[in-house]
């Protein structure tokens, strides 16, 4: 456990720092989300072989791993719930996702501190996990004792707790846990005003801000790949040199690549402004029409891990009130 370590996050920066207490979970969300386990970056969908000049599909019997996720934050649990809807509701179920998810055991850690790019409080996705976990821990460090208040969310969670030394929490400990989480909610480094956000983005379809952000946007895909809810993939066909075996692979893709929106004749979204608009509008607006919730859980990864620090909360603020960009002042080439 990373005892003695924490992180500092802001637009385009992430730094590990030492801390002088014994906290086990004294840090915020890191570079990777749990997405990489449930929706892996690459996976083979099926394979075929040539046998006597006929193509035969080879049965793949994947051995779905049983995962226990330890230290899931509330925003991330909400992201998993969102991907559950994406992959397992409706007529076309992603079987691989469903099988990996079905067996996953989830231990949540409620946040008692918030980071510089956190805004789960704005998205109603934290810092306290409400449901969907097997166990939820709240870490409490006071001068006299270091302990966890545990909420049991499932029979499997209860079975685990039986095997761990524990005692019934007192009212005072419950209160301390609630207060710690409430403090995190007050510490959010970012806020996002979600009032009528769907129509806001739909109505700002044509807005100069899209070109402004495109001047900074690298179309590098980092925001989408670190996002715990972004789910887009592309399919690749692979063959061996002598044409005897073929495989179909699925890999993460992003609405920021040209090939992702390529159809006959060219890429539908050829400019960075159209790609950024597509991403932000889908994440915060059309996701609601498509899946019934926002696609954003306020984890702040897209802000921290953008190599040039583009901040979606700032972009929404600019679209909402037309105010100039606030935040870190970056020198322009002309000004230096």
């Amino acid at each position: 456990m990373p005892i003695g370590w924490t992180d500092e996050q802001d637009g385009g920066t992430y730094r590990l720092k030492e801390r002088d207490d014994e906290a086990l979970f004294g840090y915020q969300v890191g570079p990777h989300s749990w997405k990489k386990y449930l929706h892996p970056p690459r996976r083979r969908l099926w394979q075929a072989e040539m046998r006597d000049n006929h193509m035969v599909i080879v049965d793949d019997e994947p051995d779905y791993p049983r995962y226990a996720f330890f230290g899931v934050r509330s925003c991330e649990l909400n992201a998993i719930t969102i991907q559950d809807t994406v992959f397992t509701s409706g007529p076309y179920v992603d079987i691989g996702y469903r099988e990996r998810r079905k067996q996953a055991f989830i231990v949540v850690v409620n946040c008692v501190e918030a980071g510089g790019t956190c805004f789960c409080a704005s998205m109603n996705t934290g810092p306290q996990a409400e449901q969907g976990f097997d166990l939820a821990l709240t870490e409490l460090l006071d001068p006299n004792q270091h302990y966890f208040v545990v909420d049991i969310g499932s029979k499997a969670g209860a079975a685990i707790i039986k095997q761990v030394p524990h005692q019934q929490a007192q009212e005072q400990e419950h209160m301390a846990a609630q207060q710690a989480v409430a403090q995190a909610a007050r510490q959010m480094g970012r806020t996002l005003d979600t009032r009528d956000i769907k129509m806001l983005l739909y109505n700002k379809y044509e807005h100069p801000r899209w070109d402004e952000v495109a001047r900074r946007c690298l179309s590098c895909t980092n925001c989408t790949l670190v996002c715990p809810t972004c789910f887009c993939v592309s399919i690749e066909e692979q063959t061996d040199l002598n044409g005897q075996t073929a495989e179909r692979w699925q890999r993460w893709d992003s609405c920021f690549t040209a090939d992702f929106s390529y159809i006959h004749g060219g890429s539908v979204r050829s400019s960075a402004s159209s790609r950024y608009r597509q991403w932000l509008t889908h994440k915060l607006a059309s996701w609601i029409d498509q899946f019934g919730t926002s696609g954003c859980v306020g984890c702040g990864r897209c802000i921290t891990w953008c190599p040039v620090g583009i901040d979606l909360t700032e972009e929404v603020r600019a679209l909402r009130d037309g105010e100039p960009r606030i935040g870190v002042a970056i020198p322009t080439l002309d000004a230096v």
């Binding site: 970056p41 690459r42 590098c220 895909t221 992003s254």
Partner: peptide, 10 residues
């Protein structure tokens, strides 16, 4: 033709 970032993430 996408960026090296995709490979870092993979």
């Amino acid at each position: 033709p996408y960026s090296v970032c995709v490979e870092c993430k993979q």
